[in-house]
Computed example of a mutant assay.
Amino acid sequence: MRYTDFTPYDLVLLAQGLGISLYLFIATTLMGLMIGTALAIIRLYRIPALRQVVGFLTELLKNSPVLVQLFLVFFGVPAFFRLNLTPIEAAMITLTGNTTAFIYVIAVSSMEAVGREQVEAARVFGLTRWQVLRHIIAPQAAAFAIGPLTGLMVNQLQVTSLISVIGVMDLTKVGNILNLRTLKPFIVWSVVGLLYYLVAKLVAWLGARYEAQLRAHSAWRGG
């Protein structure tokens, strides 16, 4: 067999690479969603010291290149703190931090979009901060946020391709290996690009469907 031939096992490699990309994308999105929302709540309730620290860190993360962050975590942190990080761990930390920063901005904007008169009215009726957050702010903020969050998720899916540079066997890394072995870049990168495109379209479709459900559920509020 010539080295330039494709084999059936290449499909297995592509599936494995796609699986790793999806795993990192889903895991870092969920963690970023939890952390980013929690940080937005800190800002909402104006905790002075934490608010300033959170604001500085999120500005730093969302305004610096992801590739630089990835190199800093993978090469810099182990050297400075005497730690051993695997490529997967470094990718997880970097993508979670970057996603958190953008979700924080979206969550803050969505919470601030909720009418303050509703919050004040709820407090007049004796609702606690937690009850106001749960029953008044969260449902409406979710409806405001789902569109920007969907766009962010599509972008972050594409950002995962950067982790191949530190040796993670994701979809892009597998594509690079197949390209070097087969010397057929047009076919290889067309397939890789198509796989990213299909997943991105699925994410966008799910986001649009969920947004429609949320807006339909809360449509009466704007009447």
Rank of each mutant, 00 (worst) to 15 (best):
N155Q: 09
V54A: 13
N155K: 11
T160S: 05
A219V: 00
Q131P: 05
L206Q: 11
P87M: 04
L194W: 03
G207S: 09
F25D: 02
L214W: 05
Q16C: 00
F6N: 01
I42C: 15
N98C: 15
R43M: 07
T86D: 14
S110L: 13
L44A: 13
P148F: 11
A113Q: 03
T172N: 07
Y23K: 14
I163W: 09
I88L: 13
I26H: 03
L85F: 11
T86A: 07
E112L: 14
Q69N: 09
F144Y: 14
F186V: 09
A204D: 15
I26Y: 06
T182D: 09
V154K: 06
R181N: 03
T58Y: 09
W130N: 10
R46H: 10
Y197D: 01
K173I: 03
I103S: 06
A91H: 06
L127Y: 12
V68R: 08
R2G: 12
A101D: 04
L178W: 07
W220F: 15
R82W: 10
F71E: 01
I187Q: 13
P65A: 09
L13N: 07
R46Y: 05
N155V: 09
G36P: 12
N84H: 15
G19C: 04
F6G: 01
F75A: 12
A90M: 12
D170M: 03
V119F: 06
G193V: 02
V108L: 12
G19E: 04
P87G: 04
M1E: 02
Y197I: 03
G32H: 01
I137S: 11
A219T: 02
Y197F: 15
F6E: 00
L39S: 00
N176P: 02
G175T: 01
T86L: 09
R51T: 12
T99F: 13
Q131C: 03
P148Y: 14
K62G: 08
T86V: 09
V12A: 08
Q156A: 05
M111I: 11
G76D: 08
L60F: 12
A200W: 02
I137Q: 02
G222C: 02
Q52P: 00
A101P: 01
I88N: 04
L133F: 12
T172L: 11
W130K: 00
A142N: 07
F6K: 01
F25R: 06
L149W: 13
L195D: 03
V199F: 13
V68F: 15
E120C: 03
R123L: 03
I93K: 09
F186T: 08
I163Q: 11
G222S: 10
G223A: 10
V174Y: 04
T29K: 12
Y45N: 10
N176R: 14
L67H: 03
K184I: 01
Y196F: 05
V203I: 15
A40K: 06
F80W: 14
F56Y: 06
I103C: 01
T160C: 01
A40W: 08
V119D: 05
E120Y: 08
M34F: 14
I41W: 14
V199M: 12
G126A: 08
V73K: 07
V192H: 00
D170H: 03
M1I: 03
G76A: 04
A107D: 09
F74N: 03
